[in-house]
Design a protein around this nucleic acid. Structure first.
Lengths: 166, 166
DNA sequence: CAAAGATACTTGAGATAGCAACTATTGTCC
DNA sequence: GGACAATAGTTGCTATCTCAAGTATCTTTG
């Protein structure tokens, strides 16, 4: 343990056989880092405004984007890309905060909906400008609308592949 | 509570004042969803091969990409975009698994390095093909190398903005 | 040179998400 | 019609992360 003769453990491989692997690999690294960076900024901005975390915003926004202001648990889990178990607990928190409520399906009693309440709409309207401002800062600063749209298209097609090729 | 008159809580706003907000907003949604989808696939592939989680791979890969096979804790935290506290515990796990070790700096004794051990290199070499295969599947299926490179450039510039505009 | 501040890392407490097992309801097949 | 499988959601356990506070070392400044 106190022996320092363990040094130089990897002399044969230095600086790059894995770093510069493939363009796809670098693209992935960039995707992961960028997601983390932007996500972190959004969360910081929300926290600074004393608003709930980003996950709450995404859930409220997802429900608000529907026609009826309600969404099946399963669809919501898919939209937020989290597991059903995780979603149950996330919904629990928003329900406890009075932002949404659980409603049930007449025709299929296994199904329950997360339904937006007025307080949820109100909060969402407070959060939107904060999130939007931060996104403008991150995206608009160096991307044209056209570039942003191209980016979205590219990402969508990657996601398509990721789901298909199962 | 058993009263169902709470229905129609959001009649004034239906289906889109927030869904189709701005191109930047949609690009962000796509970025988040794609990251989650690809990340999930990578983790599934690693688990299926009975290999350690993605975070271990990213740490090993980050260290292996350096010249000396070692990396300062702080730099590592920045590279993986996690907090220092989180990194300490992540490193603890890899150390316990015998993949890396902590080494110390002669000139500044506050600094410690995470140094790759032979077992770590070996494991990394097992993980690389699994991760690469999955990435090829997700990226190569619909993206040319040139598109992948453009994507990386675009993402990098976003990340640049996210860090600058503090 | 000594004290105050800055930097690097660790630690403990709390929050969140995933996994697997479980309940309840619906659909299918003989 | 009744047994078996499939689907929707919830729950307990565990692992991991973040945040804030703490320790050790270095740097600056009077």
């Amino acid at each position: 343990m106190s022996d320092s003769s363990t040094l130089d453990p990897i002399s044969p491989r230095q600086g790059g056989p894995l770093g510069g692997c493939s363009p796809h690999h670098e693209a992935w690294r960039s995707l992961a880092r960028t997601h983390a960076a932007v996500s972190g900024r959004l969360q910081d901005a929300l926290a600074a405004a004393e608003l709930p975390p980003l996950a709450w915003f995404e859930m409220l926004a997802a429900i608000a984007a529907t026609d009826g202001g309600r969404m099946k648990m399963g669809d919501l889990a898919e939209a937020l890309v989290i597991t059903r178990g995780g979603l149950t607990k996330l919904v629990d928190r928003l329900v406890k905060a009075g932002l949404i409520e659980r409603t049930f399906c007449e025709t299929d009693r296994r199904v329950s909906y997360a339904t937006l309440l007025p307080a949820g709409v109100e909060l969402l309207e407070e959060m939107v400008p904060v999130v939007s401002a931060e996104l403008e800062l991150a995206f608009a600063a160096r991307l044209s609308e056209r570039q942003a749209d191209d980016l979205r298209t590219t990402l969508d097609s990657i996601r398509g592949s990721a789901c298909d090729g199962d």
